[in-house]
Design a binder for these strands. Structure first.
Lengths: 214, 214
DNA sequence: CCAGCTTGTAATCATTCGATTACCTCATAG
DNA sequence: CTATGAGGTAATCGAATGATTACAAGCTGG
């Protein structure tokens, strides 16, 4: 019955407090929020669930980010930032004479890596269907267009190539959101679908689908 | 200035009651629910908003469908049904010797028509990112796979053709969800994007984006 | 040591929302 | 007429949730 310790991992409930610099704590909460928003969407996620996932109290989450909406906007901004950075890095590492198709393929690989950051792409998807919300919708549109321009101008893809790329990405995101990986063992059509959308990411999609967030 | 009638449209508030057969009322509520769920998602939509949109009282909505979740599942089922029916009709009307690309194009046109049913495709999208929910997720996965099989088996498309078709559809849905039509007047990139994703639906996307639900 | 800022929590509040209950009011059959 | 059942609402409830307030416990420089 050792009532002490367990300081590193899964944060204990109610207990006093592990101390930390505000900036680090902020990062921790943002990561937790990304996961929870990704799982349940903006309205479905509660500040309490986020707080529990981050191992802090609910009021702290609310005060630290000045409310739930501001927190979501911060999560959205971070997610867009990470996608942009990932694309830019892939572009910088492209071989000099790569064809548009090669370029799209390499950037797509970079996008695939983002899948492992649970919640990131799903938080984006939730923002993308929230266009009716004044604040979130505006931020989401702006972010989406920023990605579009990046692909067109910095990656040098034609508008048709960009839309083709984005379309594939949206389908991939949808499969993740659906947890389609849960069906691949039972339904041959699901296995075939996943195989054709993400040939190299089959296992990851299954793993993500089966993961539980807190 | 005929002050009478207008029985079909905007229902009055609080007032006694327009009478109707339960089955018709059910249809009315389902349509309203489709719009509201499409606008705000499952968690964001309230039974009260749906009731107001349908011109009935909130308890009636809840009792008629045995709760909000059952109502959403019904909306989801109807939406999938309509998509399937629309695709099947397009397939039936195909010229005999149509190439896979032609077939996909015709079915895509049918899909485009569904855009005018405000909320239908958006309710689907919201279901597609709700895979973490036990009930909704299962229904959404099943529905998505049903569409996949329809396109593969009844439309005779190859798995790659199907995924290409679905990818385009998901991007189109995302643009609708984003209300990207709001930006086409201010941002050339938005105009270009919409133009390349839905050349023939440009005006409709703008109109949908500016529409207000209730 | 202790003043003061930072990091955090417990307690609690006001709203909102889905659900329940009890009731009202038309239609129509006998 | 009136009994009966279907269509529909007003009133209200309990739980959940985002926010606020007040307070506790560490660090750190003088």
């Amino acid at each position: 019955m050792t009532p002490r310790s367990a300081p590193t991992a899964t944060p204990k409930a109610g207990d006093p407090a592990p101390r930390m610099r505000a900036e680090d704590r902020r990062e921790l909460v943002l990561r937790a929020a990304t996961r929870v928003f990704g799982e349940r969407g903006y309205h479905g996620a509660t500040t309490d669930a986020i707080a529990k996932a981050a191992g802090v109290s609910q009021p702290y989450v609310v005060r630290m980010f000045d409310g739930k909406e501001a927190l979501f906007l911060e999560v959205l901004g971070r997610a867009l930032e990470r996608v942009s950075a990932s694309f830019r890095q892939a572009i910088a590492e492209l071989p000099p004479g790569a064809s548009p198709l090669d370029r799209a393929h390499c950037i797509g690989a970079a996008y695939g890596e983002l899948l492992s950051d649970r919640g990131l792409l799903l938080s984006l998807m939730h923002a993308f269907v929230a266009g009716a919300d004044p604040e979130i919708g505006a931020a989401a549109r702006s972010g989406f267009l920023q990605i579009y321009r990046l692909l067109r101008d910095e990656a040098g893809l034609s508008p048709d190539e960009v839309t083709g790329f984005l379309a594939e990405g949206m389908l991939l995101n949808t499969l993740v959101g659906l947890r389609m990986g849960l069906e691949v063992d039972d339904d041959p059509a699901a296995a075939e679908l996943v195989q054709h959308v993400a040939p190299t990411k089959h296992a990851l999609l299954v793993q993500l689908a089966k993961a539980r967030t807190v």
